[in-house]
Amino acid sequence: MRGSRQYSLGQMARYLLVLFVILSAVSFFISNWLLVKTTDDLALLEEDHEQLNDQYEMMLGTQNLYKNELDQLSVSLSRVASQRDKLQAENIRMGDKLYEGNNRLGELSATLDASLNGLETLLNVEPSGDMSPERLESLTMMANQRLFMLNSIPNGLPIQAMRINDSYGMRMHPIHKKRVMHRGIDYKAEKGTPVYSTADGVVEYAGNRGDGYGVQVVILHGFGFKTNYSHLNNTEVSSGEFVHKGQKIAESGNTGRSTGAHLHYEVRHLYSTLNPAPFVAWNIANFDSIFTTVKSVKWASLKNLYPLNQTIQP
Rank of each mutant, 00 (worst) to 15 (best):
L157E: 01
M162Y: 07
P174F: 10
S76W: 00
E137D: 14
L52I: 07
S74K: 04
I159R: 08
Q160M: 11
N64R: 15
F148L: 13
S82M: 09
R79K: 13
S109R: 07
I153S: 00
D54N: 05
L150N: 04
S115Y: 02
L136Y: 09
L73S: 03
D71A: 07
M58G: 13
L65S: 15
A114P: 00
I153K: 06
N151Y: 12
I159S: 01
A89W: 02
G156Y: 04
R163W: 02
E57H: 14
D166V: 09
K97N: 12
P127V: 04
S74N: 12
T62E: 15
T140P: 00
I164L: 05
E57R: 13
E120S: 05
E137V: 15
A143R: 02
D166F: 07
P174R: 01
M59Y: 15
S82P: 02
Y56I: 07
I153L: 01
P154V: 08
G95W: 08
D54G: 02
P133D: 09
T121D: 13
E100Q: 15
P154E: 03
P133Q: 10
I92C: 07
S167P: 02
R104L: 03
E90D: 14
L77Q: 03
M149T: 12
M94R: 14
L157P: 01
E120L: 01
A110W: 04
G95R: 08
A114Y: 08
K86F: 08
R84S: 03
N144A: 11
G156A: 06
N91R: 15
N64T: 15
D85L: 14
G61Q: 02
N91S: 12
M131S: 09
E100V: 14
I92A: 12
G95Y: 09
Q72L: 10
Y56T: 07
D71M: 09
A143M: 03
G61K: 02
E50I: 06
M162I: 11
R79P: 08
Q88L: 11
L116N: 00
S82K: 00
L112G: 04
L123T: 01
V125M: 05
R93K: 13
M131G: 06
S115M: 04
K97I: 15
R163T: 13
D130G: 04
T140A: 14
P174N: 06
L105G: 09
Y168G: 00
Y56L: 05
N165T: 10
L136K: 09
H173V: 00
P154T: 06
L123V: 04
N117T: 13
Q88P: 02
E69C: 07
D130A: 07
H173E: 08
S82F: 06
E137M: 10
R104S: 01
L98G: 05
I164R: 04
S74Q: 11
P133A: 10
L136H: 10
A143H: 01
R104G: 01
N144F: 06
E57T: 11
D130T: 00
M59G: 10
Q51P: 01
G129V: 09
E120W: 03
Q72A: 12
L70I: 10
V80T: 06
L60N: 14
R104Q: 09
L60E: 08
L87P: 00
I92V: 11
G95S: 03
D130V: 03
P158Q: 04
G169Q: 05
L87N: 04
P127D: 01
Y99N: 15
L112F: 13
Q88H: 10
L157N: 03
E120F: 02
S152I: 04
I153F: 01
G61D: 05
M149W: 10
S128D: 10
